[in-house]
Write a protein that binds this DNA or RNA. Structure first.
Lengths: 210, 210
DNA sequence: TAATATGGTTACCGCTCGGTTACTTTTTGT
DNA sequence: ACAAAAAGTAACCGAGCGGTAACCATATTA
């Protein structure tokens, strides 16, 4: 890894712990064993480093979103034979496992965690950052879940209901517990278990098979 | 209102917008029309001002909590005749209205809003602040809702179920929408409506009367 | 081989920060 | 009425900030 990337990595670490204003250029340079002046050989300002991190995280975020949406196609189109096969194989158990895999990755992956923390701290810094936060961690996920439940209802896996409120009831507790997990890592196990319980109970409540 | 209180008020405003590190002593003094040196006649440091705000908000917070818990007594004790009367009068509609009243107050009251924003920005600043955030905005509310649902189940208003997951399913979407509302005030109406829909749908799903 | 781009260094700049000092004005209690 | 206490001011302090200048070693390249 070259210096330019190492700077971004260290800056993200610092920003996610102490925020933008709480982090000095020396704070970034020192752990890398270089002088703060050296930072300016790679980036022209502190703001540029922050912007670069945001920009890079947006690219990685879109990649992840791309992968997700591959699994659940646009509902405006008719389901192809392949799609039906895909959904028919879906079970409540399978979905629980999917959610838990997603949660564990989000919580244990260093990069995901740092970006989330940085955005949480910075969400009121500007309108753009606030909107980015909402878009990434709320709107996109809710939209995804809405599509998913629409399909599951069509396929008769779960009961009929308002997909928007269903998505919120399903997803919001997950982010709530992830928030606790982030703030108090010692409660990780408890949160993981609560999420598992929630997902299972949710599918029990909404499942068509009783 | 005396200067000492005005300082706290202005500091809270600044901290909630720009965070602790982003706010200077002059930022606090200037809008009050006094010099920053005058601040030190009332508080010995910037940290003390921050701590005082936290301390005061904790007192006000406890007062609110006290009022809330009066309505829903400890479940370990047997319900008194008075309590039964109280609960028997509870309807899904009444609860919806209660929740919406609580939400509207939390979102429109300047003080509540500023404290919530300040704590959101500062939640990773120290272990204590992180724990305070979780305790106030998650644990306490979940605990309250758990008790409430326990009563409602006893009284046969809603179906049997795990009160912990019920509480999460009920409360988490509310804070999620409040978060959007905080970050993007222009979406206030949309969020209020979403919360209303959620609460109504929740009681429809869990209600015993079909 | 000489010129040059790259990525470091140290020393320093102007500025703002949190906080202090010395002094003045206002309020208050007797 | 007046001394004491409280609440204000301008000016200043050392430290640390983001950022720059001048310089230097090491590769690459014409």
């Amino acid at each position: 890894m070259n210096t330019k990337e190492m700077i971004l990595e260290e800056a993200l670490k610092q920003f996610s712990e102490k925020g933008y204003n709480g982090t000095s250029m020396s704070d970034i340079a020192e752990p890398l064993g270089i002088s703060k002046a050296a930072l300016y050989k790679h980036y022209k300002s502190k703001q540029e480093i922050f912007d670069k991190i945001i920009e890079e995280s947006e690219i990685k975020y879109k990649e992840v979103l791309e992968k997700l949406s591959v699994h659940y196609p646009d509902n405006s189109k008719k389901l192809s034979k392949k799609d039906v096969d895909l959904y028919s194989g879906i079970s409540a158990e399978g979905l629980c496992e999917n959610v838990l895999t997603f949660v564990r990755f989000s919580m244990n992956d260093k990069y995901s965690r740092q970006v989330r923390r940085m955005l949480t701290i910075s969400q009121y810094q500007s309108r753009e950052l606030g909107e980015m936060y909402t878009r990434r961690y709320v709107d996109a996920m809710l939209g995804y879940d809405e599509k998913l439940f629409e399909q599951l209802i069509k396929l008769g896996v779960i009961k009929k209901g308002n997909t928007q409120t269903l998505a919120a009831m399903f997803y919001a507790p997950v982010i709530m517990y992830m928030g606790i997990w982030d703030r108090e890592p010692k409660r990780a196990k408890e949160c993981e278990k609560a999420i598992k319980n929630h997902v299972e109970e949710f599918f029990m409540m909404t499942s068509n098979m009783e």
